[in-house]
């Protein structure tokens, strides 16, 4: 096992597996987010259910570990990649062969991470620390997350940051999805284009899905 994880491909497999895991999580998260559109009561109920479900409390640390592993190993792999070319080219023209995103995954990851910090500090931590308004759901007083979220989405700077970050996320996924599959060895000559297509589609759906909510709530507030 040590030769496995010690090898460059082993490390990349860790990045790939953790990345694909996070990609799945993004879909789940998006579905939950989309319940915002169903109104205050539904969203708060789902959020309450999420907050009290034992399965979620198991998954949460797993997710955190997955994220940290993904970040840690990506950084490690990138660092050793930089060391592989100590003397840069005077002129490098990558026009022919590769996408911008594929060459800048670490940068994209960093930007997404920065957003994540903002995101967590503005929602999750406040929720955890109890600093949230309360609402009545079916006679039970629970945290009014709906109000909290929608209030956030009324702030122009926040919405803009959110949308831009989701754009970066989309780019990150557009390469990350099929790259992860390729690293796992699940691609070949025939499947390769299908994975790329699927990955691109998936990243568009995810990015657009996430963008939809802040834009929707922002426009709803400011148009009328």
């Amino acid at each position: 096992m040590s030769t496995f994880l010690g090898a460059s491909i082993g490390r990349k497999l860790i990045v790939a597996v953790s990345g694909l895991f996070l990609i799945l999580f993004l879909a789940v998260h998006l579905v939950v987010n989309l319940t915002l559109l169903a109104g205050q009561e539904t969203y708060n109920m789902v959020a309450h259910w999420m907050g009290t479900n034992p399965a979620v409390s198991v998954i949460q640390p797993v997710l955190t570990v997955g994220l940290l592993v993904h970040i840690g190993y990506s950084a490690y792999v990138s660092l050793s990649n930089w060391r592989a070319r100590p003397q840069p080219y005077y002129w490098s023209d990558p026009a022919g062969g590769s996408t911008w995103a594929s060459r800048n995954m670490l940068l994209l990851g960093g930007l997404i991470l920065a957003f994540l910090v903002l995101h967590i500090s503005s929602f999750s931590i406040r929720v955890k620390l109890g600093d949230a308004p309360m609402a009545d759901i079916g006679g039970v007083m629970t945290k009014d997350l709906y109000a909290m979220v929608t209030a956030r989405f009324e702030l122009g700077w926040y919405v803009l940051t959110y949308v831009v970050a989701m754009f970066f996320l989309g780019l990150h996924l557009a390469h990350g999805f099929h790259s992860g599959i390729q690293t796992l060895g699940l691609s070949d000559g025939t499947w390769r284009n299908r994975w790329v297509l699927l990955g691109t589609g998936y990243s568009i759906v995810i990015a657009a899905g996430y963008m939809l909510l802040p834009i929707y709530f922002f426009l709803r507030t400011h148009s009328g």
Binding site: A7, R11, K12, S80, R83, A84, R85, G96, S98, T183
Partner: peptide, 22 residues
């Protein structure tokens, strides 16, 4: 072969595809 490749200081593949294009 992979162990040797790593040992010699080559970077890891991040599926960029520039190699294939060139």
């Amino acid at each position: 072969m992979i162990a040797k490749m790593d040992e010699l200081g080559f970077g890891a593949c991040s599926n960029i595809g520039a190699c294939e294009a060139e």
